[in-house]
Computed example of a mutant assay.
Amino acid sequence: MTPGLLTSGLAAGSGGVVGLILGLVGGGGSILAVPLLTYVVGVSSPHVAIGTSALAVSVSAAGNLVPQWRAGNVKWRCAAAFSVAGVLGALAGSVAAKAVDGQSLLALFGVVMLVVGGLMLRKRRGDGDPEVRLTKANAPVLLPWLLGIGFAVGLFSGFFGIDVASI
């Protein structure tokens, strides 16, 4: 069965909003994708909405990688460690999400949205070090952080289909 014209328009419009948010702020648009797919487009299964959101956000992120790489904004060693841990976390999160019924998943998603919104209102602790690189010298300190945070981000991404890395 093919979707109706209205459903297709709602899906395209919702995708445009998510893409615009991702393009403007580099993240956070994915937290809108699941509710838009569920309540605007009418995807009945939260699990399907989460999977669809994850794919759409992944494609958008991959498209944004090239200009960031050309601008010299990608720290490849850090990204590799973070990504490997994130993929493992996403696998664990997606397995866990399948064990939770759709309504409970949406309720938990709502709680996470409130927490994320609250965290975004707080002031950042610092600017960080834009020159930091993963090296043999700092790996004992930096690598556990990259792996731990990467796994946690992947876990949330796999469970809820959201990007918490931008918080």
Rank of each mutant, 00 (worst) to 15 (best):
V43H: 09
S14P: 08
I21H: 06
G63M: 15
A165Y: 06
N64Y: 06
A56V: 15
W76S: 03
P3D: 04
L146Q: 05
G16K: 06
R70W: 02
G117I: 09
V100Q: 05
K75D: 02
M1C: 07
P140R: 08
F151V: 01
I31L: 14
T7L: 06
G161A: 00
V41L: 09
Q103L: 10
V25P: 07
W76D: 01
V25L: 11
G150Y: 11
G28L: 04
G118Y: 12
P144Y: 13
V17H: 06
G154A: 06
S60I: 11
L22P: 03
G28S: 03
A11R: 07
S45Y: 11
M113H: 01
V17A: 12
A61L: 09
H47F: 04
R70K: 13
I167E: 03
A62I: 12
V116L: 12
S53G: 15
A99I: 07
M120F: 06
S157K: 01
P3S: 03
L121E: 02
G28Q: 04
G148I: 08
A54E: 00
G16E: 07
S58K: 09
L22Q: 14
F82W: 14
L134C: 03
N138R: 04
V111P: 12
A90H: 04
V25F: 13
S44F: 06
G102A: 10
T2K: 08
A79I: 00
L20Y: 15
L22K: 05
V17G: 05
F109M: 05
L106R: 05
L65S: 14
L36V: 12
G19H: 12
P3G: 03
G148M: 11
G117L: 13
V18D: 05
N138S: 02
F151I: 05
D163H: 01
H47R: 07
